[in-house]
C-alpha cells in the first residue's frame, strides 16, 4: 500500500525507513553513481531529508520499502532552486502551488506497478494539497518510464549524458484521465487510494505537552 509519511514520523515505521534509505543508496550511489553521500551501512541521505520532507512510500506486505519519492515545498529550501538553476535558465521555481519531487527510487526488483503506484501517490498528494504542478529532479532515462505510465513531465533541462543524465521537469496535476489510468495500472479503486492518503495524514497528535 501507499503511505504518506513526514520525516519526523518515520520512526513509527523503522523497517520502512531503514529499507528506504538503503534502497536509495543502492539506486543513486551504486547503480546511478550520482554524487550522493552514503553512510557505512549503505544508506543514502542528504540535507533535504533533514527539512522534514513528505515521503510517498510504497510499502510491501512485509513492511519493507518497495519504492518512494520525496516532496518539499518550493517556497523553502529545495534542490531545484539550490542546485539545478542551470537547468531552468536560472529561474527559481517558487510557488505555494508547486512542490518539488526528488529521489524517485525503486527497490531492486520492483516492477512497473510500483512505479505507477508512486506516480499515483504523487498525484494524490498534489490533489489533496491543491497543487498545480510538481517540479522534479530525476534520472533522465526515467522519462520513457513516466511517459509509458501515461504521465510524462515537461522537460525543463537536462545535464550529463547516459546514466549520469539528470533532468528537471514539470508534472501538471490537472491532466485529464491520468489519475484514472494510474489507478487502473495499480489495480486499486479511487476510494481505497484516497483512504491510504487520509489514513496516513490525518490525526497528527500534538507534541507531548510536557515538553512545551
Amino acid at each position: 500500500m501507499l503511505r504518506y509519511i513526514y520525516a519526523d514520523d518515520l520512526r513509527r515505521a523503522p523497517k520502512l525507513a531503514r529499507t528506504m534509505f538503503r534502497d536509495r543508496g543502492e539506486q543513486f550511489h551504486t547503480r546511478l553513481n550520482w554524487k550522493v553521500t552514503v553512510a557505512g551501512d549503505g544508506s543514502e541521505r542528504d540535507e533535504y531529508d533533514a527539512l522534514n520532507p513528505l515521503y510517498v512510500i510504497w510499502e510491501r506486505p512485509d513492511g519493507s520499502h518497495g519504492g518512494s519519492l520525496r516532496f518539499l515545498p518550493t517556497t523553502g529550501p529545495c534542490m531545484v532552486n539550490d542546485h539545478f538553476l542551470h537547468l531552468t535558465d536560472g529561474v527559481k521555481i517558487e510557488s505555494p502551488l508547486v512542490w518539488e519531487c526528488t529521489r524517485f527510487c525503486l527497490a531492486p526488483g520492483a516492477d512497473t506497478r510500483v512505479s505507477a503506484a508512486l506516480m499515483l501517490g504523487g498525484m494524490e498528494a498534489g490533489r489533496a494539497s491543491f497543487l498545480t504542478h510538481a517540479v522534479g529532479v530525476f534520472d533522465a532515462r526515467m522519462v520513457r518510464v513516466y511517459r509509458r505510465l501515461s504521465w510524462g513531465p515537461i522537460i525543463l533541462g537536462t545535464c550529463g549524458t547516459g546514466r549520469d543524465a539528470i533532468s528537471v521537469g514539470l508534472w501538471a496535476f490537472q491532466e485529464d484521465g491520468v489519475r484514472a489510468r494510474l489507478l487502473d495500472r495499480v489495480g486499486v479503486s479511487s476510494g481505497v487510494s484516497e483512504g491510504w492518503l487520509t489514513q496516513s495524514l490525518d490525526g497528527i497528535a500534538a507534541l507531548d505537552p510536557a515538553i512545551a
Partner: peptide
C-alpha cells in the same frame, strides 16, 4: 499554542489542513 492541534500540526507539516482532520 502548546496544545493547539492546529499549531502543532502546522509547524511540522506543509500541506493545507482542514481542522476536521486533526486529532
Amino acid at each position: 499554542a502548546r496544545i493547539d492541534p492546529v499549531v502543532q500540526a502546522c509547524i511540522r507539516r506543509f500541506h493545507p489542513i482542514d481542522w476536521k482532520r486533526l486529532n
